[in-house]
Nucleic acid binder design. Structure first.
Lengths: 209, 209, 209, 209
DNA sequence: GATGAATGAGCCTTCATTCAT
DNA sequence: CATGAATGAAGGCTCATTCAT
């Protein structure tokens, strides 16, 4: 649900409610995500967000209690949705290689669908670790890491993945390579999302040599 | 020269001049790099930098004309040094595989030696693209990319690297995987710098399967 | 219009809008003009202006983009109004002597009505010449000078004014003598505005002997 | 003595002492006067003065106890010298008309010889009235005014000056017209100092008609 | 005397947030 | 719900002044 809303917002189609009125809340969240992603959370002013949404800065506080609350909602929505989808894959796919491929393809899909949220997560999560309010960010990250590592470990156990590679390092390499694409990937750009996914999988599985 | 200074500063050994007096300029640069890396440039205040260096905020302006000038010097020093070392590798190593390995190992060494500068570059360069003053950042990045791509292309031409992988995508994957380690790598941590380099090279060359 | 607003503000009667609310913008402009006139622009702090108006310094930026913008508006309003009135006199009065008398009386009236703006112009215009933003100040000054000189020249041509006096020097003497009165003239003081005007005209026309 | 020093400084000839060394004190005073005149006291920084004199800002404090002390000395020297010369005229010239002419010519000479000091006095004296330290400024001004007014009154009594003009207003007109020329008079410019004096005297005595 | 680094106070401006209308 | 004016806390930077060398 939350994911669907986020997708709609990020992809730019006007968030319109069943009664025809514009959904200001979603609009604001979309503007905020875009600006946080482009300029960073600290450098984005509440006024920037208001301007882009077409209301005054003060009016934002009718929808969100603070600028931080917007960041919170963007991250929470993104992480819960991502975790949900990853969990579904783990449950569904018994084969480690197919599971890993699915995890990676789902990650690329998330980058394609909600690039702003992904960028915000990439750029801001590091500075949020010590903030009580954002404890869930580290929690989700940790749970997702454990999930991926279970898949990789299962693959090593079944002999489909190499055993001379440290599973944690393999996870970090894959994670960073995949999610970093948000910095340069542009929908409609040189490389379609699926092509990037295919090539990355090819390289990760087969190696460069 | 600049590189040596930067290393000294980043590794924490007191920057002392020949006359025994403390080199405040280098101290300030080190403090700034550390804080910029940890909290982001925007969130770091000039007072933070002064506090960590043990002087008042206003005194910083005896050594640097602005907060931005400090960011500028950190990035310029880092990028010029990195580009210099990469260029030396390209000239020295005729064999593409050995050249690529050297580029990667040198990158890991840079992360180990000047983690703050690397982190600052990773986190801030994106928002600096359109700033006239920081045009050199994009310039260096572009020149480094072209250098790496020449090596990768040479490797494909000589048959040592796979030809079914887009060379640009391969570059991006490697670059992002390598440089992202700055986010989690800690000297003296679980994985020594060389181990990370070895494992990453193994995985990149041979693949996961 | 602008003149009317300025007058009201300068003479101290509370600027009140039709809806009964106080016009903070006009209040601020009046406070600023008063302080700029009394202490100089450079020495006047934004906080001074806020204090005198009864708001915090930061709130000023709701109404003006900068301290300089306030100076700008004070000068622009004053000069445009003055030029307008001078131009009307030139068009209306064909007789050079009557025209000159009118110009002088109007100047004294301006000093009486908007003493702060006059003082600010007297004290600050010299340092503003080279500032792009304040180019209009020199423009207006020049146009006004040319206007006065046309009147004086016409008076010499028609034989009503002496021909052995350089017209430019006559202009400067009159201008400086008249406008300098802003430094000592006080409404309700020893000399009413009209008395000063009469005596000055008498002296200028007839001489001291 | 002080006057001689001031003149030398203002006219630009290197202040050199009998032992051949440069007189830094006089240099500093000259630089300060020039800058105070050009930019105003408040806007002139101690560093500006040091730069123009060729020493560091901090070194100024070996010669003057504060920036204010420089202003003080400039004004004190100027006013004492001026008062001295005016007093000499009053004592020497029994004829009111010749005395007034002398006062005026001496004023123009002061503007020619020490334009910076004159400008500083013109621009800053207004803001100094309430400062204990600068009480002498108002004292001198007052004594000079009384001196001029004695001359004017004597002229009226003897019938050489008109009696229908208020003597105070006449003084103010003459004073302001004369001293204001410092704002536009430039040595070597269109009008030589003596020409300005002659024309002003002509106009003041004979009138414009 | 001069230097250059440092101080400390203060300045202009920004900005998240509040609140009466 | 939105507006717009106001708040209050910083933030980057300037500058007169001090002082050890």
């Amino acid at each position: 649900m939350a994911v669907a809303k986020s997708r709609r917002a990020e992809r730019g189609s006007e968030p319109v409610r069943t009664d025809g009125s514009v959904d200001r809340r979603a609009q604001l969240l979309a503007s905020a995500a875009e600006l946080f992603a482009a300029q960073g959370y600290a450098k984005t002013t509440v006024r920037d967000i208001g301007d882009r949404t077409g209301i005054l800065a003060g009016s934002i506080y009718h929808h969100f209690s603070s600028k931080e609350a917007m960041l919170d909602e963007i991250l929470r929505e993104f992480l819960s949705g991502l975790h949900e989808r990853f969990s579904a894959i783990e449950e569904r796919e018994a084969d480690p290689r197919r599971a890993l491929s699915e995890l990676i393809r789902t990650s690329f899909a998330a980058i394609h669908d909600t690039p702003h949220a992904v960028a915000v997560y990439q750029n801001e999560s590091g500075n949020l670790a010590h903030r009580e309010r954002f404890g869930y960010v580290a929690d989700y990250s940790s749970r997702i890491e454990q999930l991926w590592i279970r898949v990789l470990t299962a693959g090593q156990a079944s002999g489909v993945f190499r055993r001379d590679i440290d599973v944690k390092l393999a996870y970090l390499l894959i994670r960073d390579a995949v999610w970093s694409t948000v910095r340069w990937y542009r929908p409609g750009g040189q490389f379609p999302s699926e092509t990037v996914a295919d090539q990355y999988l090819e390289l990760l599985y087969g190696g460069l040599l």
